[in-house]
């Protein structure tokens, strides 16, 4: 198939970017979207042009490094699918495809489609952990955890940190990302003890990074590659209010 591509090119964080047109022929339906991008890059090399920079690594939907806005949707037209798991059979011959980076002022564009998601790391640093140092652990079976609780914790912990939730959010909110970690740790007995401190610190950091507020449109759940439920945001809200109501300051 033949495609018309409109791809965002930007030299670096401080310069302005723009959409550039490319034509690509010979794309087959079983190629992945990123393989199509590889193919385009090979053609650019042949022409002596700088290749299009985009983030990707595992190409099996788990590392969370890839992520682009494809035809105006985070990770492209499919729900709950990373960019690397999107295949060209989702597009039509002759189609025009727009490709842009994930946008939010908390995600700086580094070059072309690569963005800096260090803000996510800093939210985790604020409190997204259990303070258990190596060697402090008691025997694993001494803390029984109900099957349902373990499964619920997994549902939250499955987040791959790709940033699609932020990219698709009309407010660029990191609520789903933050909530997933807060809830994962809060519902486990090991992590419960630090909940109040954790949720407060993570909310502060989320704001300090410049993410917006959550207005419950639920778009994030649709685009989330792991389908993390927006109910985690509700529970995160609950835990936050609880921590504020019970706090001593």
């Amino acid at each position: 198939m033949k495609l018309n591509l409109k791809i965002w090119r930007q030299e670096n964080a401080s310069e302005k970017g723009r959409l550039v047109d490319y034509q690509l022929d010979g794309v087959t339906t079983h190629m992945s979207f990123l393989e199509m991008m590889d193919m385009l890059n090979q053609q650019l090399i042949e022409k002596g042009e700088r290749t299009i920079e985009f983030d990707h690594d595992c190409r099996e939907g788990i590392c969370g490094q890839c992520g682009m806005m494809i035809n105006g949707r985070a990770h492209g037209p499919l729900a709950n699918t990373t960019t690397c798991q999107l295949h060209m059979r989702s597009f039509k011959d002759g189609e025009t495809i727009y490709v842009e980076p994930f946008r939010s002022s908390a995600f700086t564009v580094l070059r072309d489609l690569k963005v800096d998601r260090g803000s996510f790391d800093r939210i985790i640093q604020a409190g997204g952990f259990i303070s258990a140092a190596t060697g402090q652990a008691p025997e694993a079976n001494s803390i029984p955890i109900a099957h349902e609780t373990a499964e619920a914790a997994f549902d939250a912990a499955a987040c791959i940190g790709c940033g699609a939730c932020v990219a698709t959010c009309k407010n660029s909110s990191a609520a789903l990302f933050t909530a997933a970690k807060v809830v994962h740790l809060a519902i486990l007995p090991q992590g419960k003890l630090e909940t109040a401190k954790r949720v407060d610190a993570m909310v502060q950091q989320m704001d300090a990074e410049g993410f917006g507020h959550c207005s419950n449109t639920e778009a994030c759940e649709v685009e989330c590659p792991q389908g993390i439920s927006v109910l985690h945001i509700a529970r995160f809200n609950f835990l936050y209010h609880q921590s504020r109501l019970m706090s001593k300051t």
Binding site: K6, W8, L19, M69, N71, G72, R73, A74, Y98, E100, R103, S104, S105, A106, V109, T168, K170, N171, S172, S173, G210, F211, G212, H213, A219
Partner: peptide
Amino acid sequence: KQKANGVKYAYDQR
């Protein structure tokens, strides 16, 4: 929110 969003998408189907 406007501050958080930064640069607008050129093509937006969100």
